[in-house]
Design a binder for these strands. Structure first.
Lengths: 216, 216
DNA sequence: GGATAGTGGATAGTGCTACTTACTACTATC
DNA sequence: GATAGTAGTAAGTAGCACTATCCACTATCC
């Protein structure tokens, strides 16, 4: 397969493919001559993965490069790989200074204890959650912190599905990482979309007729 | 309150506040002289809202300007406002051409019917969900589409909490929009974070010891 | 009462990201 | 043998979210 065919098979413009190869997101083709190379289904697959992660997962080129280099490096242990993959796509944003993060941290720790989850204070997701809780207090939305348990129950339901999807077969590295990465990054967007659709329905049910939280 | 105090109260640098005022995200101060103006708690509050939405909600300046201008316009009907707010923060991304969107659309419509939700084919969240489903098929993750019902059940749980939070009192416009906007935008990130924390726990339970999907 | 730091308002510049364009020397194909 | 395409590389671009600099003016401290 030549580059034009690769481009046609994926819908990604040729210069963009060149850019991705340069950035290490997609492996180079197998050279067949001084200025000719051969691409295969693996390239098509990888390219579609990159597009999905970028379009629906919102991952940056730099994050994806990290991920793909880990994936292409056979030295990396499989289970570290999955954990690392999960952490890589969880960008940690520290709370703005001046915020009361201690109270938020304690609230989250208590929630984690109530649910019987593991408390991992340095996990980027933990740091993000703490930042959000602190931020919600700042903005005066303490009521949202109070219903945290409801959100946590839903999150656990989602996570159970995620783990079920991963299954037992972790022998295919590329496949396993794909499951984790797509499931997590694209899954976030999917869940957000489903949430909005459900919201629209429930809003109409709660505030019927012209009172509904819907235009028109 | 002068600009330096407003900056100190919110942690937002003075030039950034000026930029936000220029962009219409924050109303100008009440002028008290040729080059002096007065800011109050409303400005502090608005500034914190903007920061939260940007930092944790990932909203762009342009989207927030839209939102804030709606909020500051007394012509807008309250319930339209809420629906519009929800749609504004849901960026719709159309599927890349060449993808089989018809099949994905039908799958989603069936899911919506199974759950008794309203089918709103033009809602941006619907369009996004269709794009994701098509994309998942493209990447060969059909198994993820199969467990859609589990995700939808969790999404409904979240949406029920959202609506409960909104409550009955929709008289305070700014407050109601804040609830919807923060709840939705920041809530997405919060749920994503909780999901990852739950995943880490469940992964360890499913793949114990060194097999856990966690590095160290 | 005079130095100094700060003010609102405006324009221009910065750093970053994700591509695009343009170019070169070469090659497959009609 | 003309033409379109190829790999590889360097330079350019568009958009975003600020940030810096400037201006005439003003509040405040010593």
């Amino acid at each position: 397969m030549r580059m034009a065919e690769l481009s046609a098979a994926t819908g990604v413009p040729v210069p963009t493919i060149k850019y991705y190869v340069r950035e290490g997101l997609v492996p180079a083709g197998r050279p067949t001559g001084r200025n000719q190379a051969d691409y295969d289904d693996g390239h098509v697959r990888r390219l579609k993965l990159v597009r999905s992660l970028s379009e629906y997962g919102g991952l940056s080129i730099a994050v994806m490069r990290d991920l793909m280099q880990r994936l292409d490096n056979p030295e990396e242990h499989d289970f570290d790989l999955l954990g690392a993959a999960q952490k890589t796509i969880t960008e940690h944003r520290e709370a703005s200074p001046g915020t009361d993060r201690d109270q938020a941290e304690q609230e989250l720790a208590e929630l984690v204890a109530r649910r019987g989850w593991r408390w991992e204070p340095h996990h980027p997701a933990t740091r993000t959650a703490i930042g959000i809780l602190a931020s919600l207090h700042e903005v005066g939305r303490d009521d949202m912190v109070e219903v945290l348990d409801s959100y946590a129950a839903a999150a656990e339901l989602i996570a159970e599905t995620d783990i079920r999807l991963l299954g037992d077969d972790l022998t295919d590295r590329e496949r396993a990482v794909e499951i984790v990465v797509i499931g997590t990054a694209v899954g976030d967007t999917l869940i957000a979309a489903l949430r909005r659709i459900a919201q629209a329905t429930l809003a109409r049910r709660t505030y019927p007729a012209e009172r509904a939280g819907q235009s028109r």
